[in-house]
Nucleic acid binder design. Sequence first.
DNA 1: GTCGACGTGC
Length: 599
Amino acid sequence: MAAAGAVTTVAASYVPRTRDSFLHLLSKAVTLSHLTELHAQLLHNGFQSDIATTTKLTHRLFDFSAVHHARSLFFSFPEPDRFLCNVLVKGLASNESPRSAIAAFKRLRERKSIDLGPDNFTYAFVIPAAASVGDVKVGISLHGQVIVGGFCSDLFIGSALIDLYFKLGRDDMARKVFDEMPERDAVLCNTMVSGLGRSSRFEDSIGIFRRMVSGDEMQMSNVSPNPVTITSILSACAQLGALSLGQWVHGLIKSNKFDSNIYVSTALIDMYAKCGSIVEARRLFESIPNKNDVTWNAMISGYGLHGHGQEALKLFHEMVSSGTPLTRITFLSILHACSHSGLVKEGEQIFKSMKRDHGFEPISEHNACMVDILGRAGKLKEALDFIEGIPGDPGTPIWSTLLGACMVHKDTNVARMASEKLFESDPGNMGYYVLMSNIYSSDKNYPGAAFVRQVAKKRNLSKTPGCTLIEIHQKPHVFKAGDWSHPLSRAIYAELERLNGKMKEAGYQAETMTSLHDVEEEEKELMVNVHSEKLAIAFGLLSTEPGTEIRIFKNLRICLDCHTASKYISRVTQRVIVARDANRFHRFEDGVCSCGDYW
DNA sequence: GTCGACGTGC
């Protein structure tokens, strides 16, 4: 503390200092004004051409984002060496100036006469810069230079290259770099695990994780999962809905004493909530002593996902009184919870208080939430008024939200208006054409529906195929629409047939007929085909004891017919069915869904 | 005097 005090007084400037004491003070500085003061003292003490202190000062200035100051210090130094140049490249790269970092790197390479050629550090700094701007040409050129320079076995560079190739969308190259590393450490493996996860290649990602756990490969003999690995894997479990794997990882967390890591415990809450175990998520939440904003947000959004709007509101108010700083994501989470539960008044109040009491100017996503809240509740006129009140261009997500609400409430006029904006701003997105065509169909405007589909076809767009996952005895089974690839297909279709009879007796009517008119043959076939949700549910019924809860996961939003069918199935079989779709959870019990038919 | 990977909202 004495040191920190000294640098803030002007009198101290006249005390002669040694290089070591300056280096120490530079590392300790906690504010930018400390650094500015130290810079003045360095000049007073004749250190302007001392490279070690100049390097440290440049580094620390970048730490405080004083990019301009750091830059001019660098350029005022007569003969920078490679070390100082590396600090410049790193500083620029980590201060949202990756393009300047690349430019600086190129200038250095051109001046190789004074032995400023890049070393392993330079590449470890400049490759992430190329990755963050997504520059394929520069990225590949850097990889080439790494090979020529003989830096291939450097672990820092290896991780940077793996991350680069994932960011460029070249998963196979990332894999190649990983496979060819003579030795691997935890960070290198984690880069691979999280990169594969971001590319939705979960099985591959889990494969690397398993190899880290088993530890019987020469190249990874000293590598075992750490908290970073664990959070990446939990995030994969959450996206996959892989509860049993998540539980197994939870065991690993306990035996490795990673419980106290806040990243790990927050990821666990998120995993349990997204895998359908909201009660377990809350139990864990309560057991965490050092909750931060992200922990609270994860729990609030978990309640939102399950349609437990009141619980989400209670927790939100507890968060406010706990003194935890609220963030934009807190408001997104609570507003989503309101929209999923139809809490219009509460949502409006929170939206107002966000700006008034907490000083957050709404960004596009908050506005989209409000449109969602109003639109889902059928207040399309209010939603339109709200959109008109948004300064500037409301943006694609808002029109897309409004279009979704039009589908639920069958409003063709507002839908036409929203879709025109969307076709203009995002013409390559098939989802909008499908929605608009369905809206026309449900209004019996078949020429309109056919026209929209034709436009989509001319633009060569195709639908994301729907699929549903169900985990039986810790093994995942994935079904597509009309799937016959499962070994038990005969039994599954027979079970569906049997269910259909019982459901019809109970009053079920298929809801697909309205959209069957005037569609292309290929598409008609797809619509007549049994949806993947039903196949997964039938398989679940066959494979589990009576009374067991059935949990399924759908990659898209659940369709109206499958939603209705699931309600009937839950009644005629007396089973609870929990379905997670792309948006939220549905819990079907005795003919009723927890979403209140509101999704 | 200089290096990397993780959790919350769509």
